[in-house]
Amino acid sequence: MAMLKTILGNLLRPSRTRAPADMPVVPPTYRGALTHDAGRCTACGTCAFVCAPKAIHFTQDPGISVSWHFFIGQCSFCGLCEQNCPTRAIHLRADVPGSTNSAGGDGLRLESVIHLQPCTRCGAAHVPLPAATMDALWAAGADEAERGYCPDCRRWAASARLRTAFTPDGAVAEGGRHDR
């Protein structure tokens, strides 16, 4: 009887079949096509490390650039790359992409080139830090020059800063010892 009531009710209601135009609401948490912001990427490799199906890998053009590669055919859209990216360079878009095809090579493979920059001190090519990170680290301070440094020179600069700033607690005692 429950079934008879249900199906007669269905007869009076419009069909539940959805038309192509009647798309379900895409939730904001939807994990769609990947986007990569080369300006933020530090080529740290975390995304490639956490990608289970190995859809992401990096290639290097020594001294010139590092390239981030993504193949959608291997992607499982788990979103771990987005979750784990330290500089939020990867984002899974919530808007649904249209169907992709390989005709023009569009959409299936993504390549994003991160250009290396010469170090302003030693000239070694390196991946620059994202602008926002740099702003946070060197907030319009005296060490503005360090912005263009490579990681090695940053370590050197840090070391130099430490050396100049170092005021030993036991400077007096030490002096005393020297005196003796």
């Binding site: 609401v25 939807y30 994990r31």
Partner: peptide, 17 residues
């Protein structure tokens, strides 16, 4: 639909870490 609204996906929710 509820699962999709919460996790963004209908089958492999990817909710756990």
């Amino acid at each position: 639909d509820t699962l999709e609204a919460i996790s963004g996906n209908r089958v492999n929710y990817g909710m756990n870490c």
